[in-house]
Write a protein that binds this DNA or RNA. Structure first.
Lengths: 206, 206
DNA sequence: ATTATAGGCTAATTAGAATTAGCCGTCAAG
DNA sequence: CTTGACGGCTAATTCTAATTAGCCTATAAT
């Protein structure tokens, strides 16, 4: 990892813990193992570091999103994946989404950073809503739409189904962000939630 | 309103928008209409203002919580309230909770402030989780527990029902915090969500 | 070999922001 | 009527933190 990359990495960690305004460039430098003025060999200003992070992770997200079931674009093509969907598969989808958001090094720090900056910057607010609400809900709307058409699930508004499927996952995610010790309990709750969800909507007589 | 109260009020507004670290005492003073040094006639320090706000709103919350259906303590006594529960009543409970959290002057600013400070102060993290997750979910768990016992609702884990009832409301709340223009859409989604929820769990044949 | 560049350092500089010092007017209690 | 506390103000003061200046070394290309 180049020094420039390490600066961005450590800065992201700090920004996600304390917010932009409360991180001093000296702390970033310390974390990297250099002195504060040396940062300016790589970035014009503190703000410049922040902007670079946003840009970089935005890019990473766009690359990864579709492969993890977040972004709505190509879920139609995944239809065949759901031909033999089962309760266990549904649980895996939910848990994986949760654990990915919670543990992926970039996702989790980025989400926390956006959490802390969301009210000051309308662009970041939009980005947050897109990544952690609109995109996942749209993606799942497509999934449920397919499942309903295939008669795997009862007739119901797939958008509401997606909202109901995703919201507990998101809510528990924010709880775990505040208290990582809750993770085990959260994963259990998600599992029960999805079993119940499946029993509410699923038609399969296992 | 005394000057001291006005200081706390304006400070809360600013803290909820930009976070503690990015609000200058001069701004608070400006908002109140006095000069920065005069603040120190009322508070020992900037931190002291912050602490006073936490204390004050914590008090307010404890007073109000039970009357709005957030705090779990006395919901058992409200059992009779749910004797003739209907879909419309359920929708009203959900909408009211949402709109109270979103619009109550104190609740909404306090929530945003906690959002911005949650990762730096474990006490605030706990407070956030209590007020916006544990308490409402417990309260609703009690409601659904009663409704299940009364055979108004199908047999199901009331804790999961509460999680499923509340999470979409909470999730949409955070969306509206970032983008107030979403409110109308969010209220509609909540309504559909609850209708669907009722049709999933309710036994009533309207 | 020489030199230019990248990237590091120490020591200013600048700027901004919290807090303190010390003064002043008002008003209510004696 | 006078005094003391309350609450405001201006002008320091003190700190902190971002940024700039200017120097030094290693290394890689000419």
């Amino acid at each position: 990892m180049t020094t420039k990359e390490r600066i961005m990495d450590e800065a992201l960690t700090l920004f996600s813990q304390k917010g932009y305004g409360d991180v001093y460039v000296g702390e970033i430098a310390d974390a990297v193992g250099i002195k504060a003025p040396s940062l300016y060999k790589h970035f014009k200003s503190k703000k410049d570091i922040f902007d670079a992070i946003i840009e970089e992770i935005g890019k990473r997200y766009e690359e990864q999103a579709s492969s993890i079931g977040i972004n709505g674009n190509n879920s139609m093509e995944d239809a065949f994946l759901y031909l033999d969907i089962s309760e266990e598969v549904l649980i895996k989808i939910g848990k994986d989404l949760f654990l990915y958001f919670l543990h992926d090094g970039y996702m989790s720090r980025f989400r926390k950073m956006l959490t802390l900056e969301q009210f000051r910057n309308p662009d970041l607010a939009k980005l947050y809503t897109k990544q952690f609400f609109t995109d996942p809900v749209e993606y799942q709307t497509n999934i449920f739409s397919i499942l309903c058409n295939m008669e795997k699930f009862k007739e119901a508004d797939p958008k509401i189904m997606a909202l109901q499927f995703y919201s507990p996952i998101y809510t528990l995610l924010t709880v775990c962000d505040r208290d990582p010790k809750m993770e085990k309990k959260a994963v259990k709750l998600i599992e029960y939630h999805i079993r119940q969800f499946n029993s509410n909507y699923g038609k399969a007589k296992k």
